[in-house]
Write a protein that binds this DNA or RNA. Structure first.
Lengths: 144, 144
DNA sequence: TATTGTTATACTCTATAACTATA
DNA sequence: TATAGTTATAGAGTATAACAATA
């Protein structure tokens, strides 16, 4: 019967996640973005065009969850919704240039704050941590 | 103006957290524990005795949040609540032997599942990842 | 007067189930 | 009949405020 020798991953990640979200809050507020709004802008950054359902899944939300978010971001000119000519049931969602700018501005500030945390790690640990986190995050995404 | 070269930490951690919680769910259900119940058992493991307020903070919850959880765990004999003789306002909460057993049994299974994830990393990255995660998690706790 | 644990209330968030328009 | 997007409803989860006991 193996002895427990480390904390649970979830028990270590949970407070870290809380701290990251708390640190993001004022930055997002300055840019007049909600967390879900920012998540959607980030989600749209990876691929140019999404259906709303695919976007919702990429962001880890229900399709009904992001509709109000899309309404607001569209109203502010950060994204477009255009019916797909090939299947007029689906909306193709894409970032506008101003949406890209808004995302990049907010993301730069957020990552600058994150760097203060990462600065507590040795350079090799920092590299390994980010590499491992990318790997595990990708595996987690594929599992769901 | 620095270019963005990696995903946000929160954007990588969020799906990982979701996956870990989803994987824990069936294990906890088998042990008839809720996530908050398990979190409280874990929180009590570090130090032998807590006030309810300190325990709530250690678990990252409001003091009102854990009262029902404590009621249930006490009912099942997993913990004791005794008024502090020195200050009869506070309840001193401590694990019973059977609470310790329940926690250890669940934790062993959970960490076995987590090992399947960590097995995707090289041995050095695994070590560095866990070391870095401990560090960052501790910093995050102290900040709050 | 301030603090601990508790309870009750209000609020927010999320999940579920209908509805429409297309296919 | 099935699916994408939408809307409305219900439920769970969370935060806030008030209360009793003690300091």
């Amino acid at each position: 019967m193996p002895e427990v020798t480390r904390p649970d991953l979830a028990a270590m990640i949970a407070p870290l996640m809380r701290a990251l979200m708390a640190a993001e809050q004022p930055v997002l507020a300055r840019h007049d973005l909600t967390m879900w709004g920012y998540a959607v802008l980030l989600g749209l950054g990876n691929e140019p065009v999404y259906t709303q359902a695919a976007l919702a899944k990429a962001v880890g939300a229900d399709k009904t969850r992001i509709i109000g978010v899309l309404d607001e971001l569209q109203r502010r000119g950060f994204l477009r919704r255009e019916p797909d000519p090939a299947d007029r049931r689906v909306n193709l969602v894409s970032l506008t240039p101003s949406g890209r700018t808004a995302r990049d501005d907010a993301q730069r500030e957020i990552q600058q704050e994150e760097e203060q945390l990462l600065a507590q790690l040795s350079a090799p640990d920092r590299r390994a941590f980010l590499r491992a986190l990318r790997t595990l995050s990708e595996i987690a995404r594929q599992a769901d």
